[in-house]
Amino acid sequence: MTAVDLGERQGGAAATAAADAVRFRHVSKRFGTQAVLRDVSFAIPAGRAFCLLGRSGTGKSVMLRHIAGLVRPDEGQVLVGGRDVGALSSRDLASVRTGIGFLFQNAALFDSMTVGENVAFPLRRHTRLTEAEIVARAHQRLAAVGLEHDYGKMPGQLSGGMRKRAGLARAMALEPALLLVDEPSAGLDPMTAVEIDDLLLERKRAGTTLVIVTHNIPGARRLADEIAVLHDGRILESGTAAALDASEHPLVRRFMRSVGGG
């Protein structure tokens, strides 16, 4: 599938729009004089895994922020579950966000809480579970990312990779239908990286839509139903790994051949 194809699909029936977990419609975004996104359009069907590649500073993180409604597009629309996040009231936006898990590029753990409390935080705010259930579930989430012994530690006491994993545990605490993951394996050893990928794969099998920003091409090949390459504010090309391997863009092929580190 190419960017052109995407454009065509966007003109299709409204029913497809509802079935898409995420859809960008001609989204443009600039910061000051710098145009970061230029007329970007694509769609991610529910339950699929979507990997975003691109050089540093091309706007991948900005794209994830658009999905979570943290940034509003200058032009165009971002639809999540068929709703335009840029135009929602704060209450509706909150209800959309409860269905989204977000792993930030630097984990963004709350410094004032323990790691365990960080993971428990979404549970406390958005569920009616008892204290014991919350703690039990937070423990379980931490164990899933290999941090079962670090519940009581403060974020400052963790290594970068551990923080990343704790952030992922927090993002997955509510078992969201849509998981936004910014460089999950950056800073992790290859073995842990594989374990994280396994975890994400498991989520995907459970029906979660994944949007993954990554520099780890082997991981992307394992996970992604569709891979897109962001360049110069636009999606240069998107499709399955095999399709991209066969791309005529030298840049895309170079990307796919790199072993990647993040």
Binding site: R65, A68, G69, L70, S90, L93, A94, S95, R97, T98, I100, F102, F104, Q105, N106, A108, L109, F110, D111, S112, F121, P122, R125, H126
Partner: peptide, 21 residues
């Protein structure tokens, strides 16, 4: 300082993203 640090390290965004005002 505290809120500044939270802003700079995206903790405020993380809060917003967890549907907390």
């Amino acid at each position: 300082a505290e809120l500044g640090a939270m802003r700079v390290t995206e903790q405020i965004d993380a809060l917003e993203a967890s549907a907390v005002d």
